[in-house]
Structure formats: structure tokens, C-alpha cells
Nucleic acid binder design. Structure first.
Lengths: 330, 330
DNA sequence: CGTGGTAATGACACCGTTGTCTTGACAGAT
DNA sequence: ATCTGTCAAGACAACGGTGTCATTACCACG
């Protein structure tokens, strides 16, 4: 910048003004500086600028796994909102690891991100309190904040699971397998609750043999289903509480040749779910909407909105495609 | 930091040493400083640190669309390599937009990323030359650099498309539709070349009616296929040169009730391709490997490797799942 | 006991910008 | 002709750290 100033014959501050497109610089000087910038291939040092001006134009996004369509879709929505402000997104995957969350939050705070979108792996977020007091803006996504008060955008998991289960019950199913994720994961727990509530509402009792939790990957889901079906009285329907697990379940049913005999409903839509045979009935969460809401709320805070933190619930939607409409076997 | 130093009764520099875990600080002082850091909720300002030390611990990744499984998988692989160094990844989606590439590259360079992974939207990259001379490290992914010399990790698209087409020819197909992406996109062009080469190798001539380019989304692919099949002598096989387009093609065949009559091979694997009915035969590119290679090369450069830039070709692999093994109708 | 080497700490300038304040010039009002 | 206000430009001191070098203390060695 010093060189640019020298070449253009102006002061440092004037170059700064031109680079930042500030008003009140005469046209000939703007031209001279611009020319000097180009001649010297000057690249404005955003980091130094941030140091002085106290904002970075970066938002952080800590998601579970950017290669999963849910996180990836969310990230994309965040990015689109950020881009309108010429902001940029710093992402990382947490993989449900508690330590990694702590470390990455620390890293991003150290980098002075203007705001943070967090899909937490932990269930106690009080460690964020000092940073919140210091002005950090955080919006939780998909999972509730615990031990602190901050904005959140959540899917109504209980209702979604309730609807899915009720839908299966409505077809006459009485033995419905629930393939759940780790019960320590809040959303998984809520889906479990929704499943149970639907059974109760239908006057049924929970059969513990029909609940298998701790399923994370499609491989695990596949094996779990195969195990359960290797029994004298297998279920007639399956509710898989996660996209990867639903995929595993579909794969298992396929291997068993039961795709058209056993009903299957998944939580969380994904590309191609409609192309399976039969099409996979799912509870869909609108990722694009969730991401946009979270980003909008974050930017409202950055812009100075100091209203009380809110909990925004996005309703999920049951999408019927065939697999969930298979009646129980006679 | 000043406060921490005061509370611990040491100099600024000593706090800096402790925070950065530098050697040659006595244990009691480390303890004192650490305690002061915690008492004051001190957060090290990474930006200020970068300013002096001239590296940021950030790598940039400009991909086409982080919500597409290809870009998302790549991003995830990059992130995993970066994390081992406690580095962080700044991402953005280019959506094949030339202007956005320019702008985002400028932004990331301004932010002084330590290195850049670029899946370019443009076909002339000479605009990067000044930055390269100034020390910027860039590794191209999926598409070749033009007008500059730098490392790249590419998929052998010509061979992949050649193999796919030859596979279909081997089943006896003679009328093979090629649904291609925008021909201006390098990879799409190469796949077109591979398709043509396979036809030539089989002693056949290219039928221009059987080549439809410019297909980007699954919707476009679906419609294009429907149009082509609405003719007196439709093709007996389809080669879709992109994952989204293959999905659209599969959807269209499904609508036409031809899923089991018309052969289909896609380029680019994606989750669930095996679960379609029939399973989708694809040319698979190993995204994880590509991402890891690109990141490893980038870090080798960052670590001072000054050997000549290399062009790394990753061979794609034909994965047979059924849809590509359907013989032509009698 | 003097010498040289190493470990632990601190002083200070500098990294590349921008916020704040000052100055000078000029236009319009009186 | 004087006063006031606005615009253009610059001087200077931060922003929050770290690289470099200097200093001191201590130890081993011949």
C-alpha cells in the first residue's frame, strides 16, 4: 500500500479511501490510485484491515458433516446469504465429536468471525457463555442450545416422527421397527419420543425389541435391519430416523427381497429418494429454508438486533412416495 | 493480551510464547499465564498474529457447488487433511460463473489464504499469474489450468467416457444417446471426446441427433431424454455425462416405463446409485482420493516443495450395477 | 576462577491497515 | 470583504500480536 501511495503521489490514507470506495475522493485521484494499484498488482490485505476495523466479513459454520446432504445443503444456503454481503464462510465438520466442537469454536472465535452457525455435537453449551457476553453472535441449527440463551432454528422432530409413525399405524401396521441414531443426539432422542407418542396415541405399548438405537451409518442400518428380520415375528414396517440409516434399511430390504412387502419411512429427505423402487416415503426438512432462516437471524443480530433470542421451529413434512404406503402382510 | 501479561506479571512476549506453546518457558510461568488467560477469558487474536507472522492457517476451496455430492465430498476430504494441521477451510461455490470466480479468488488472496484449491469456472487462468509470482499456491482440481503453470489433480475424463461408451457398444448397442453438460465446461468436452472416440474405435459414425449437450440439472436431463425418446427410432442406450443428468435420465426412463429396457450409464457416482432399480452403472471418480491428493500437494508446496508443477491423473472406474448391462431390444 | 554455552525473559520495532483529527481550499451567504 | 460550511487530502496513532535481538542467570568445564 505504501508503494501504491508513492506511485500515485498520495498519502496512505487516500489509497485506503480509494480501495474501500469511500466517498469524498476526487475523480482524478481515484483514477491515479486505481492505475497504481493495477501496475503494482497490489492486493489489499484484508487481515490487516480487519485488525483495525474490528470486523472480518467471515461467518463460521460448524456442521456435522459437510459431505452429508443435510449439512451440505445447509452450508450452501448459508453461503448464498453470506455472499450477498460479500461475506465468506469458514466451515468445518464436527462428526458428533465433543472435543472437536470445543476446539473449533475456540479457533473460529480466535479468528474473530462476525458470527457463528452451530449445529452442536455437545449437549452443554455453557462453555460459550463468556464469548456470548463478549459479543459473539451464535445461531444454533437443528439442535437446541443448552445452558445458554441464543437464537435457534430447529425442526420439529417430535411431530415429524409422530406423523411418520401415525402414518404407518394408519395403514394398519402394528409392529413398527424404529431404527434410531445415537440416543445421546438430541434430534434422535426427539424422534424416538415422537415414535413413542404415536404408539401411545394409538393405544399401543412400546415393544423394546422394536427399537434399535445407536445407528449412524448406512452400513449399520443395513445390518441392524437384517438382524431384526432374522426372527420368527419380524416387523411389518420400519421407521428409520436418519437419511443414512434409511438408505441402509432400503438396501437391506432389497437384499431380502422385501422392498415391496415391508413399509419404510425415513426421516430427512435426500436426492433420489423418489427414484428408489418403491419411492421412499420420508419426513422432509426444508434445508434451504432452515439455512436461510439461520443466516438471516445471524445477520439481523450482526446488524444490531437486540431483541430477545428466539426459538424458531420449522415444521417437517411427510412426503408420500410409495414405500410408506405398503400395507401390512395379511 | 496486555491484561493477561499484567495479571501474570510477565511481559507481552512471554504471554505470546505461552499461548503459542513455544519451548523455553519455565513451568511455573506457563502455569501463571495459563491461569491468567482463563481468569480473563482471553481469546488469542489469530488475525493480529497472522499479520505479523505472515501465514493464516487457512486454505481456500473454490468449488462448483458445495451442495452437490462431488464438491461436498471433495470439501470434506480437504477439510480432513487441513485439520491435521489445525488449519481451517474457507469455501465458496462458483456455479460455473466466471465473474464469481474472479471475485472470490481476489477475496481469498486478499485474505492471504496459505493456499488455494480451485475447481475453476473459467477457461483462461492467466489472471492468476501475478499472484502466483507473488507466491500464491494453487492446486487445480477436476479441470486443467490454462495460461498458467500449476499443479492439478484431474480425472481422466476421456478414458472414462470412452470406457463407458465402449461398454455399451460391447452389449451390442448401436444407437447410444449422449446427454452432455455445457460444452464450454472442460470436463464435459472431454467426456464428449471420449464418447466420440469409442464410436470411432468401433468403426461407427457420430450421429448428431444422438448428442444433446448443455444439460446441467436433473430436470433438464429428464426433459431432454423425454424429447429424444419421442421419436420414431429412439436410442437403445444412454450415456449421461454428469451425476445430476444421470438422475434426470433415470427419472425419465422410469416415467416411460423403460428402466429395464434402455441401458443407462452415468458419469460420476453418487450415494444410492446402487439402490435404483436397476442399479445405476456409473463411471466412478474417487472424490476422497482426489481431495486428499490435492490437499497433500498443496501442503507440500506450502512446506516449500519447489519441484516443477505436475498434472496428476486419477483413473476413473466403471462400476457395473445393472443399468448399463441391459442389452438392446431385439 | 575465568570462559563459553544455553535457558529464560524482556524491550522494541514492525506487520498493513484505518479511525480520528487537522489543515487548506474553495463556494456561497451576508 | 468576511464568515461559515463542506470537501479533499494528509498526519499520526492505534489495532493485537510476533520476530529479532539483548540481557541476565545459571551451569559445566578446563
Amino acid at each position: 500500500m505504501r508503494d501504491v501511495a508513492a506511485l500515485a503521489g498520495v498519502s496512505l490514507k487516500t489509497v485506503s479511501r480509494v480501495v474501500n470506495r469511500e466517498p469524498n475522493v476526487s475523480a482524478p485521484i481515484v483514477a491515479k490510485v486505481t492505475r497504481a494499484v493495477e501496475r503494482l498488482n497490489y492486493r489489499h490485505n484484508v487481515g490487516a484491515s480487519n485488525l483495525r476495523s474490528r470486523r472480518t466479513g467471515v461467518i463460521g459454520a460448524l456442521l456435522q458433516d459437510v459431505s452429508n446432504s443435510f449439512s451440505a445443503g445447509l452450508l450452501r444456503a448459508l453461503e448464498d446469504v453470506a455472499r450477498q454481503r460479500r461475506h465468506v464462510v469458514l466451515t468445518a465438520s464436527l462428526d458428533e465429536e465433543v472435543e472437536r466442537e470445543r476446539q473449533l469454536v475456540g479457533d473460529l472465535v480466535g479468528r474473530r468471525v462476525d458470527g457463528l452457525i452451530l449445529m452442536p455435537a455437545t449437549r452443554d453449551h455453557s462453555y460459550l457463555a463468556p464469548d456470548l457476553r463478549a459479543g459473539l453472535r451464535v445461531v444454533f441449527v437443528d439442535r437446541e442450545p443448552h445452558g445458554i440463551v441464543t437464537d435457534s432454528v430447529l425442526v420439529d422432530n417430535v411431530t415429524g416422527a409422530f406423523d411418520a409413525t401415525r402414518h404407518l399405524l394408519g395403514q394398519g401396521h402394528r409392529r413398527i421397527l424404529h431404527l434410531g441414531d445415537l440416543d445421546t443426539i438430541e434430534t434422535a432422542h426427539q424422534r424416538q419420543l415422537g415414535y413413542e407418542a404415536a404408539l401411545r396415541a394409538a393405544g399401543m405399548r412400546l415393544d423394546p425389541d422394536l427399537v434399535v438405537t445407536g445407528q449412524r451409518t448406512s452400513e449399520m442400518g443395513e445390518e441392524a435391519l437384517l438382524r431384526v428380520f432374522d426372527s420368527p415375528s419380524p416387523p411389518t414396517a420400519v421407521f428409520a430416523s436418519r437419511n443414512t440409516v434409511a438408505i441402509g434399511a432400503a438396501r437391506a430390504l432389497r437384499r431380502l427381497g422385501l422392498s415391496h412387502q415391508i413399509a419404510l419411512v425415513g426421516f430427512d429427505d435426500f436426492p433420489l429418494a423418489d427414484l428408489l423402487e418403491p419411492g421412499l416415503t420420508v419426513v422432509r426438512q426444508d434445508v434451504g429454508l432452515i439455512g436461510r432462516m439461520a443466516a438471516d437471524i445471524l445477520y439481523a443480530r450482526i446488524d444490531g438486533d437486540t431483541s430477545p433470542a428466539e426459538r424458531h421451529l420449522v415444521p417437517p413434512k411427510l412426503v408420500l412416495r410409495g414405500s410408506g404406503e405398503i400395507p401390512p402382510r395379511a
